[in-house]
Amino acid sequence: MNILLNGDQKKVAAATVSQLVLELGLEKRMLAVERNLEVVPKSEYEQTKLIEGDRIEVVHMIGGG
């Protein structure tokens, strides 16, 4: 399905947030996922289904002051 991933259209095979994180190779990273402006808790990755057109943000920590 097509989702808006970090601002870009992307075709993904994943059906859930946990599958998406695996598909992106980010499972070992300290990150957070937002789906349609709502934070997805890690405990809900597996049951959170992706829907066509979802707006997903995957963020992490970088250097900043």
């Binding site: 970090n6 992106l24 190779g25 300290m30 992490h60 970088i62 900043g64």
Partner: peptide, 24 residues
């Protein structure tokens, strides 16, 4: 230590991260 929150670079998931160096 302060850190900023930004989008992950989806195209390069293996790239080093600040927290590989700054142990939380």
């Amino acid at each position: 230590i302060t850190v900023a929150v930004r989008r992950v670079n989806i195209t390069d998931p293996g790239k080093e991260n600040l927290l590989d160096y700054i142990d939380p």
